[in-house]
Design a protein around this nucleic acid. Structure first.
Length: 275
DNA sequence: TAGCTCTCCTGAGAGC
DNA sequence: TGCTCTCAGGAGAGCT
């Protein structure tokens, strides 16, 4: 499940492969992935002839900077990009192919078909859904403690659910929320309104630290994630909580518990993270 | 307005 | 061996 570190790794590896390539044609096999514009034929018409000038990231979104447009892509659960020779066989889970003038092609593969693509004229992407709904990226200067505390403190939701809310902070998903809460020694079911400013400061610190370490390791591969060069991430070897149920806590030896919070599998140490 | 539930979607794994 | 059921989960829509 690509979260910020995985998307950042995809961005870096993909950029090396597609920069300055011009889109000659597009094949779309699952039109529901295209969310903006509504008409898939219009999407094709606008993108054909455009050159990929840069690839940026905001939260878990990839932003393909074209000449006149910005393609905003979310990988959701299992979306992947890869560059292939046009003669290589196409996987049954490949849903969009960008054919390049240079002869190779960028393929979007997504087993669960959850991924999305929005196309905007340059400048409109940041004032339109979905990007205008996002809170600060944890690596941005805009990720300010006072704002973070205000958003958390006014909520009666469980802190696990608050941290998964992309309008509070953009980029955390289920894995890194569990890891951040473990490192900050905060129980996932505690209400936002109950957290002290010191605890929120700890959450801010450990979210940035955890994500930065994961970026260095190329992300976390739980089931299927690989970067755009087909390499898996390595951060799964450093997980303290996520996927560690019924294994001893690396801090105190208590078995890691797993519960459901907001429909998400949630892993924590009942001894280190008191409710 | 806040917060909860449902929905989309398919592969893996368990149980029979 | 093959079938059915459950689970995994990001985010938007819809409901209370």
């Amino acid at each position: 499940m690509p979260e910020l570190p995985e998307v950042e790794t995809v961005r870096k590896t993909l950029k090396q492969l597609v920069l300055n390539k011009t889109i000659n044609d597009i094949s779309i096999f699952w039109p529901k992935i295209i969310k903006q514009p509504d008409d898939v034929e219009e999407f094709k018409h606008l993108v054909i002839g455009q050159t990929i000038m840069d690839i940026e990231r905001k939260g878990k979104f990839l932003l393909f900077q074209l000449n006149e447009y910005v393609l905003v892509s979310h990988l959701r659960m299992e979306g992947k990009y890869g560059v292939f020779n046009h003669q290589e066989p196409v996987s049954k889970h490949t849903h969009v192919i960008f054919h390049f003038r240079e002869g190779d092609e960028l393929r979007y593969n997504d087993v669960r078909k959850f991924g999305t693509m929005h196309l905007f004229r340059k400048g409109e992407e940041l004032v339109s859904k979905p990007l205008n709904q996002l809170g600060p990226d944890p690596f941005e200067e805009k990720f300010i403690l006072n704002d973070f505390f205000d958003k958390i403190h006014k909520s009666e939701r469980a802190i696990k659910n608050i941290l998964l809310d992309q309008s509070v902070v953009a980029g955390l998903g289920n894995i890194y929320v569990d890891e951040t809460l473990y490192r900050a020694r905060i129980h996932p079911l505690r209400k936002g309104s109950q957290l002290s400013k010191t605890e929120v400061e700890s959450l801010q610190h450990f979210s940035i630290e955890t994500l930065a370490e994961a970026v260095k390791q190329g992300g976390t591969t739980i089931r299927s994630y690989v970067n755009s060069q087909g390499q898996i991430g390595m951060f799964q070897q450093q997980l303290f909580a996520y996927g560690q149920e019924n294994k001893p806590c690396k801090n105190c030896g208590t078995m890691i518990s797993k519960i459901k919070v907001g429909g998400r599998g949630t892993h924590f140490c009942a001894s280190c993270q008191k409710e």
